[in-house]
């Protein structure tokens, strides 16, 4: 099995050079830049975080020159399909809805559970007001669960709403909430929800070659353990 993967990887790398020619050798990586620790802007305004490290390593392994671009979360998929950048690497969970429109590489993190962050630990999440970021899988989940959903445009505002007592709790990726819970004041609830699959890189459906290259690169990082090391370094999810 391993051998098979290695050959596909080698094959992908070989086609990589040819593809790199046609792509003008630059692959544009689209991210949001506002979702620490996954991706955020550092003090100099450059993209940083788990996905920056991961993306740079993947590009190195696939022998591609990569360029980082930030784009608003709301229009991140329309801008991919209309060709303004070539990949989405922005903590995007693989869902059926998204998969129908774009292609995903194999997941580079296992599914990350979603957590509740609340003012007090005795909040009953089935019957209270839950804040979520508009158009995330968590917002859709709360809407279906029957709890009261309050939607905000940014993750920052969802936290603010809980602090101000506007909502009883916020539902978001555990990795996003953990550093906030660590500051005290707000508490993480015991309950966790498994929503969505793992996180993968999004590509245009017509970009099969590029997808194969990144798939191979992710596989090689999984195989030599460097992916797990990165996940642990940034505390974004459980390891493979």
């Amino acid at each position: 099995m391993n051998k098979l993967i290695l050959t596909t990887a080698a094959l992908a790398l070989a086609t990589g050079a040819a593809l790199a020619e046609s792509h003008g050798s630059v692959v544009r990586m689209g991210t949001e830049g506002a979702y620490a620790p996954w991706n955020y802007l550092d003090d100099n305004g450059d993209v940083a975080g788990f996905e920056r490290d991961l993306g740079d390593e993947l590009c190195k392994r696939a022998e591609l020159t990569c360029q980082w671009v930030t784009n608003d979360w709301d229009s991140i998929i329309p801008n991919l399909v209309s060709g303004n950048y070539d990949t989405i690497i922005a903590g995007m969970s693989i869902t059926d809805e998204r998969d129908a429109v774009i292609d995903f590489t194999q997941p580079y993190t296992p599914p990350d559970p979603s957590c509740y962050l609340a003012l007090s630990a005795d909040v009953d999440v089935t019957s209270s007001m839950i804040a979520g970021q508009t158009s995330t899988i968590q917002a859709a989940f709360v809407a279906e669960s029957g709890a009261m959903l309050v939607e905000f445009a940014t993750p920052e505002e969802t936290i603010g709403a809980v602090r101000a007592g506007e909502a009883d709790a916020v539902l978001a990726d555990c990795s996003y909430l953990e550093p906030i819970a660590a500051e005290g004041e707000l508490v993480m609830l015991e309950r966790k929800e498994m929503i969505g699959g793992g996180v993968g890189m999004g590509l245009r459906e017509s970009d099969g070659e590029l997808k194969a290259m990144f798939d191979a690169a992710i596989q090689s990082m999984k195989d030599d353990g460097s992916l797990n090391a990165l996940i642990e370094k940034w505390e974004v999810a459980s390891t493979f």
Binding site: S22, H23, G24, S25, V26, R28, V81, S82, G83, D86, V101, I102, R204, E205, S206
Partner: peptide
């Protein structure tokens, strides 16, 4: 869903 034009037609060129 994809909007794909040839590389030479990209605005601006991806390179």
């Amino acid at each position: 869903n994809d909007f794909v034009v040839c590389d030479a037609a990209k605005l601006p060129l991806s390179s």
